[in-house]
Amino acid sequence: MSDRDTVCEALPALLPRLRRMARALAGNAADADDLVQLALERALARADQWRPDGRVDAWVFGILRNAWRDELRARARKQAVFVAEEAGLSVGEAGVERHVEALSVAEAMARLPPEQREAVALVLVEGMRYAEAAHVLGVPEGTVTSRLSRARAALRDWLGQE
């Protein structure tokens, strides 16, 4: 089996995790879907760059993260957004109380600096080990630990939890 085949086989199973990470980074479903699509396109186009000694998920999460950073830089230049958040969200079947709580958490996550939000998304949402997250983020494991500690403290303060 070629490296390209390995990458192609792994991508469908990664979709839910990629979407969660993209949602944590982007803050809304429309931008998250665009981000996942872009990351998948890049992964497929560059499948020959994946190293068999590495994990496909970590490699694709790195692509997703870099694509988001590219988007942030482009937005800063253009001063534009994909879609207004209100245009893409629907309440769904959740009760009002759960919806308000979810919005509060989403708003608190959006207030975190990007570095902390990435660490939270990878470790707390995706369940990656600190070492794996550090590899994806390209930082030492202690930096991930520090970012998570600061993010947890900020989220507790903003969400009024003890």
Rank of each mutant, 00 (worst) to 15 (best):
S2W: 01
S2G: 10
R4E: 15
D5G: 01
D5T: 11
T6D: 14
V7Y: 09
V7L: 11
C8T: 13
E9H: 14
A13E: 13
L14N: 07
P16T: 04
L18T: 07
R19N: 05
A26N: 05
G27C: 03
D31L: 13
D33L: 11
L35M: 03
V36T: 12
Q37A: 14
L38M: 12
A39I: 10
L40A: 03
D53R: 14
R55N: 10
V56R: 02
A58I: 08
W59R: 11
V60A: 04
I63G: 07
N66M: 09
A67N: 08
W68T: 07
D70N: 07
E71P: 00
R73E: 15
R75V: 01
A76E: 15
A80M: 11
V81L: 14
F82N: 11
E85N: 06
G88I: 04
L89C: 02
G92M: 03
V96H: 09
V96K: 08
V100A: 13
L103Q: 12
S104V: 00
A106W: 00
E107T: 11
E107H: 09
R111S: 15
L112D: 07
P113R: 15
P114K: 01
Q116C: 10
Q116H: 09
R117L: 01
R117W: 01
V120Q: 10
A121R: 08
L122R: 02
L122A: 08
V125P: 01
M128N: 03
M128C: 08
R129Y: 06
R129C: 03
A131E: 15
A133P: 01
H135F: 12
V136Y: 07
E141Q: 14
G142H: 11
T143N: 10
V144C: 07
T145Q: 10
T145P: 00
R147S: 04
L148H: 05
S149I: 00
R150H: 12
D157P: 00
W158L: 10
Q161I: 09
